[in-house]
Each structure stands twice: as C-alpha cells, then as structure tokens.
Simulated assay, not measured.
Amino acid sequence: MIDIIKHTPLWVFALFAGLIVLGVKQTRAREVTLRSVCVLPVAMAGLSVFGVYSAFSGVIALAVWFVCLVLGWGVARQFGLPKGVRYINEQHVFHIPGSKVPFILIMAIFFTKYCVGVMLAIQLAVTQSTEFMVIVSAIYGILSGIFLARGLQILQARNNQIDLQPA
C-alpha cells in the first residue's frame, strides 16, 4: 500500500484535496449561480467518461457508461428535487441546502478512477476482462447519471419558481 501511495503523482493528491474542499462545500447550505449549478455535474460526468475512455477506449465501454448514465439519471429522478431548493429570482441564484450526496458522489468517482488507475498500473490480470470493463463503466455511468439528474432537478427549481410568479 505504501508503494502505491509513493508512486502516486503529486497532482493526484492536489486533485483529491481540491475535491474534498469542493465536496465539503456541498454539505453546507449555499447560494449558487446558474453556471455553478451546471459546472459540477458536467465536470464530474467528464471525469467519469474520461476514466472509461482512458482505461478501456472502446465503444462497448462507452456504450455501457452511457446506458448506465441513463439508468442512474432515471433512478435519481424518482427521488425528486433535493429538498428545500429555491430559485431566488431577484438575485438570480439558487438556494441549495447542504447535502452529503454530492460529496459521496465526488469521492466515489475519484476513488473509482484512482483504484482503476492503480490496478491498470500494476497490470492486474482482472483489468483485461470484459466483466471488469463492464463493471467499471457501469459504476462511472451510474454515478454520472445521479450527478446530472441532481443538477437538472436543481435547475427545475428555477422553472418552478418562474411558473409560480404572477404575470
């Protein structure tokens, strides 16, 4: 284990620290702009699809990722809007209550990418199997789908707020 940590590039630790800070911020109530609501889910989905592409670079892996993204999105949509989200029209910001869900999703994507990277670097035989590719692509896809659904559901608060205002 120590060897793995020793051979991890420094930028990975910097990224990890940055993601922890970002994740902790998500656990507190905050007001964010439209841009901020969109950036995090898109960035995490991008990191996720990059993880699939860099590890497997095949059409099948990307297809599994996409199908699982849609499944994760669909499941997350069933849970509805994060409770207490409001759009403040006068300030053009979203009030989002704190939640541990984004922090957990961020860490899950990071650790999946890290563990897969380590497994590929030490050339474990399992990493060459179709099952491994499908499982990893599915994990990335599901996590990305949940993240994107949350972002889209937060955006829906803006539409709901606009629809409720008198003409």
Rank of each mutant, 00 (worst) to 15 (best):
Q161A: 14
V12C: 05
M1K: 07
G23D: 06
P41Y: 09
C38T: 10
G145Y: 07
C38S: 14
H92E: 15
W65F: 14
T33N: 12
A14H: 10
V39D: 11
F132Q: 01
R77N: 10
S144Q: 01
V24W: 12
I4V: 15
A125C: 02
A61M: 03
I135S: 06
Q128Y: 04
V85Q: 00
L120E: 10
G74F: 07
L22E: 11
V49T: 09
F56S: 03
G141Y: 04
V37D: 08
S129H: 01
M1V: 15
V101H: 09
G141N: 04
I146C: 06
G80N: 02
G98S: 02
C68N: 12
V64C: 02
A61C: 09
T112C: 15
E131F: 14
F16D: 10
L69D: 03
V32H: 03
G145I: 12
V93I: 10
S129C: 00
Q165E: 13
I88W: 05
M107G: 11
G151F: 08
H92I: 08
F79P: 05
Y53I: 05
A138E: 01
I135W: 10
A17S: 08
V64L: 02
A63D: 03
V116D: 08
Q128G: 13
L47N: 13
I20M: 11
S54Q: 07
K25E: 11
V116A: 08
A43K: 04
F79V: 00
A17D: 04
V118E: 12
A14I: 15
V59M: 11
H95A: 07
G151N: 04
A29F: 02
G46K: 02
G46D: 06
V12M: 09
V67C: 05
I60T: 13
A125M: 07
I2K: 14
G141M: 07
F56L: 03
I146T: 05
I96E: 07
A157N: 05
T127R: 00
M133A: 08
P166K: 11
A17M: 12
I88A: 08
G145V: 14
V64M: 03
T33Y: 06
L148M: 10
F110H: 01
G84N: 02
L34E: 13
H92V: 12
V93W: 01
V93D: 01
I104D: 06
A55C: 03
A76H: 03
V64S: 00
I104G: 07
R28S: 13
